[in-house]
Design a protein around this nucleic acid. Structure first.
Lengths: 239, 239
DNA sequence: TATATGTTTATTGTATTCAAGTTTGATTTA
DNA sequence: TAAATCAAACTTGAATACAATAAACATATA
């Protein structure tokens, strides 16, 4: 908490601690991060089977850490373990995806609400910078989708941090990772670029004006891709 | 999902599937459930050191499944693994506890909002029954705190289910478990019983009237109060 | 020819062994 | 007597060996 407060003042991130933690990191943890990244980026497509032996060979470790990583990923819902039938990258059904988006919208809404009250001046500057960057990317003749995705991510992540609720930040970050592979498909649609920037604008202004409710609503609106009525309708289907 | 839909109609829970899953459950998973329960109930107090060898002996398994369980619990934040220094039941600081309550309030608020729109008639009946039960417990000359805690849990859990968002249900349930050991101390305060029932009344009425916003606010209010009481409780401790 | 059953193979779950690190206690020196 | 250093033991991290289960293929029978 204290560290984070300092963060807000001097705008630096203490990478040393991360580095130190990395040293002490267990092989399984390390592997989990690798795989999680691969999955959330879409490198490992949903449905892909993960072979213990193969991964063990690839990463030059024994099966034990690989299994550890699998369990961890299963716990966070990114892979599915079927007893003695191997691990597969979890396929998220349309239903569950909508469910997750709904929760995501609520969590990010809370982030925005808290950020409106707690954001530091330094974080305000940074947020404006990121937004400006995003605008520039959008104005390019042929916007780079990957770059847009990346900077868009930065925008949202900064708001998580600005909520100054570490737990919320972690939860939201983790959930975003989990739906990352799918979200990318939606967020990156070219026609979404303009409206994304517009919506970010609204969120940002609300935060800058310390209008918690407006920030909450703007963020929720930004993330509510489908009408709530439609979601209700699909929820009745039951997959 | 299909099962859940049927749930709504005939009010039964298919225990067979759970039983079947239990059979196929891995030892590590099983152990995780046991430990998680012990922790969330408060049987294993925060700060308690968990010894691999001892647990392996107690549960008549090798160290491997025990380690698996530890990793899983660490992933969900219930225990802390310090490299080669053993696992301890995580002590949740006051800060983080408040952070968690804030997220909890938001998630349960969403549950209530969705429940207001989606609750089935069967679930309405059940909710009313549970509430009535809670009232009766509260009216007893000397209310049983454990029973009150248990039935109170049922009330909230039913609302999670009535949201008809499985993912949200799981997330909220998991978070509640995580703060369970601390929450219990607060919820069980005798003077909270009356106001808890009153607040439940408001939440329930809003849900019955399909007033999503009112349900959301009532639930958030209900849990925010818990947070404030929590502050009082912790203040007594001094930590 | 199709289906069912049995056997074999491959893959995962569990146990045991090996290695590395931390802690604690004892001994020595100041 | 106190503090510091070294060593030994205990505990965890990782690897390998073993057991059990499920899937796939082949053969036999209807």
């Amino acid at each position: 908490m204290q560290n984070r407060a300092e963060d807000g003042l001097n705008c630096t991130i203490d990478e040393r601690i991360v580095g130190k933690e990395r040293e002490r990191e267990t092989l399984g943890e390390n592997l989990r991060r690798h795989l999680e990244r691969s999955i959330s980026v879409g490198e490992l497509a949903p449905g892909t089977r993960l072979d213990e032996k193969e991964l063990a060979a690839r990463y030059q470790v024994s099966r034990t850490p690989v299994r550890e990583a699998f369990r961890l990923l299963a716990a966070s819902g990114m892979v599915e373990l079927r007893g003695r039938q191997g691990a597969i990258v979890r396929e998220i059904g349309v239903n569950q995806l909508l469910e997750m988006f709904q929760v995501m919208a609520e969590l990010e809404g809370l982030c925005a609400r808290l950020a409106a009250r707690r954001i530091t001046t330094c974080q305000r500057q940074r947020l404006a910078e990121i937004h400006q960057h995003l605008v520039e990317i959008g104005e390019a003749p042929t916007p780079d989708p990957d770059l847009f995705y990346q900077v868009n991510l930065e925008f949202h992540e900064l708001i998580y941090t600005a909520s100054h609720n570490t737990f919320l930040e972690e939860q939201t970050h983790s959930l975003r990772n989990r739906v990352g592979a799918y979200r990318r498909q939606v967020t990156n649609l070219p026609q979404r670029i303009a409206s994304t920037i517009e919506e970010h604008e609204r969120v940002m202004q609300a935060i800058f004006q310390h209008d918690a409710e407006a920030a909450h609503n703007a963020m929720r609106g930004h993330l509510t891709l489908l009408g709530e009525d439609l979601i209700d309708f699909i929820a009745q289907f039951g997959r």
